[in-house]
Design a protein around this nucleic acid. Structure first.
Lengths: 138, 138
DNA sequence: TATTTTACTTTGATTATCAAATAATCTACC
DNA sequence: GGTAGATTATTTGATAATCAAAGTAAAATA
């Protein structure tokens, strides 16, 4: 098998397994996949406007408006109105939203620990370096 | 930052970017994300029964039944009835379904090529080896 | 043989989604 | 300044995806 095919295989396999894991974790929580994903992106990247958030999530801004409405009502998000550009709205986690993000992130950390438990320190550092390069190319 | 936190960061960042890429690719196709994902899993792992497929996709078998109905109607999937266990149904790609999978897979290969274009052969081999180990731990 | 478990489907309700239309604001150009 | 076109977000109406729970049929078990 060619290198590219092998690379593609391990990358897509990782992606699929991660998606499957995420589903099962979300199923046990009181929030939906879409809701947790929204909190996750904001937690990992910080507050951002609707357009950027929609792009990160891979949905339209119309869908996101509805989603944000619900999360605001639940007290997990807040809308902040920009002074510079009054069309733009910054979406940010509330303290409650941040707490849920942190709880979810702890699950991710446990998974990462489990997934890499058999790697040496050298291997872990190598994986970090290689994936960083890959991520930059997106 | 600790090694585990860094590892978690690159792994989740890769996952998120891949999900975002997948969304934008799917948006341009005539099939939905759920539909393409179903074809993708069957194409990558081969025919399997409803329960396994639902688990891979992270959905309930009830949801999957509806999804498979549609894809069968579109001529992309077929149901095969098992002789050994007549409760069990094997879901398989038709030739048309296989063709769509292959087209989608070609997009994945292009992405992989793009993402790893600056890596040396040694780095690519290392990445394959490391991610294989990670994938095995799921 | 009777009971329990397993695999899948159906049903009814909810949630997520999009595309298109709308509203408000900004930018660029005259 | 004023206007035309682009940008940002929301609303609306329709469709698709999802789940939980109940139902059906077959297999496994006791």
């Amino acid at each position: 098998m060619s290198t590219i095919v092998s690379l593609n295989k391990v990358l897509t396999e990782f992606y699929d397994k991660m998606a499957s894991w995420e589903s099962s974790v979300v199923r046990e929580s009181e929030y939906s996949l879409a809701q947790l994903h929204t909190l996750e992106v904001l937690g990992n990247h910080g507050a951002m406007n609707m357009k950027s958030l929609a792009h990160h999530l891979g949905i339209t801004t119309g869908t996101l408006t509805v989603q944000v409405d619900k999360l605001v009502k639940l007290g997990l998000l807040q809308r902040r109105y920009s002074e510079q550009d009054r069309r733009s709205i910054t979406v940010a986690l509330t303290d409650a939203g941040q707490a849920i993000h942190e709880h979810h992130n702890a699950l991710h950390l446990s998974l990462t620990e489990e997934l890499t438990k058999d790697l040496s320190q050298v291997d872990r550092d190598a994986l970090i370096a290689l994936l960083s390069k890959v991520n930059q190319e997106f």
